[in-house]
């Protein structure tokens, strides 16, 4: 769009220097707004954020472990064999993924009055939605580490740096996706409905409730093995890597890391590019 580049007002340029410094404050404030207002006027308040994964673990364990008798893998080399731990180490990052995207999708449309009245960099809206959920994830993961130590008597603490790197990469990956769905939803409200439909199958196509081994290798679809096709889903890499670090207690394979870093870079770049393209007319369309 050469025309729009030519007419870009110097309002933005002269302010950009300042804004570069200030966005940290803006992000902090918007993230705090998100966290503070989330459980306002509810009797249980923050208990809800604990209750949600708790109920999920109980229900999924009952259905998949007890009824359907899905066997968790035995941790190698940790030797752990517990469906609840097996499930939680991937379920918590997945729930971060789901809530982040759901909230980021509406982050711009829900702030319509703000967007049409005040100029500020719009990307902070989906980003702060993700950041707010990320803080929740940090707390949940800390609790999980303690639980594993207490219940299973094994210490995953040495793997904290690896988990933190994984989480940081997942944060960037999710911000990339959040920028895409947040911006697209301004123009097509279908996005929020599409996301509601897509997230459930996406979860079942990620090794959260069952081990990756259960995906067959001996069948083909369109000339590609089921397992290969299955692994095109980037969330498979995160699930496996989290499980390696927290359940097996080993370093994820180099292929996993490459897939994770590659997906993060691509999605973040695409998200930023799409957002930049859709940003100028947001105030008109929102």
């Amino acid at each position: 769009m050469p025309a729009s580049r030519r007419v870009r007002s110097t309002t933005r340029r002269s302010r950009r220097d300042l804004v570069r410094l200030l966005q940290v404050d803006l992000l902090v404030n918007l993230t705090l707004r998100d966290l503070r207002s989330k459980y306002k006027r509810s009797a249980l308040g923050w208990t809800w954020s604990v209750l949600n994964p708790l109920v999920a673990v109980v229900v999924y364990s009952a259905v998949f472990s007890v009824f359907l008798r899905i066997q968790p893998t035995t941790g190698d080399p940790s030797g752990i064999r517990s469906y609840a731990v097996f499930l939680l180490v991937t379920l918590l990052p997945w729930q971060f993924h789901v809530t982040s995207l759901t909230e980021a999708t509406r982050s711009i449309t829900a702030n319509g009055p703000l967007i049409t009245k005040i100029w500020f960099p719009r990307w902070v809206l989906p980003t702060s939605s993700v950041l707010a959920r990320f803080l929740t994830l940090l707390v949940e993961m800390a609790v999980l580490l303690v639980l594993i130590a207490v219940i299973e008597g094994h210490y995953a603490f040495a793997w904290i740096p690896v988990v933190l790197v994984l989480m940081a990469l997942q944060l960037l990956f999710t911000i990339g996706l959040a920028l895409m769905v947040g911006a697209a939803n301004v123009y097509f409200r279908d996005v929020q409905h599409f996301l509601g439909v897509a997230l459930a199958p996406w979860m079942f196509l990620t090794p959260i409730l069952y081990p990756l081994d259960m995906v067959p290798t001996d069948r083909e679809f369109l000339g590609m093995g089921y397992r290969t096709l299955y692994q095109l889903n980037p969330m498979v890499s995160w699930a496996e890597a989290y499980r390696n670090a927290l359940y097996d207690l080993r370093f994820p394979s180099i292929e996993r890391w490459l897939a994770i870093v590659g997906a993060t870079v691509v999605v973040l770049a695409l998200g930023a590019a799409l957002f930049r393209r859709l940003e100028p007319r947001m105030a008109e369309e929102v």
Binding site: V7, R8, S9
Partner: peptide, 8 residues
Amino acid sequence: LAGILRPD
């Protein structure tokens, strides 16, 4: 002027 709308 406020930067909310982009000139065409």
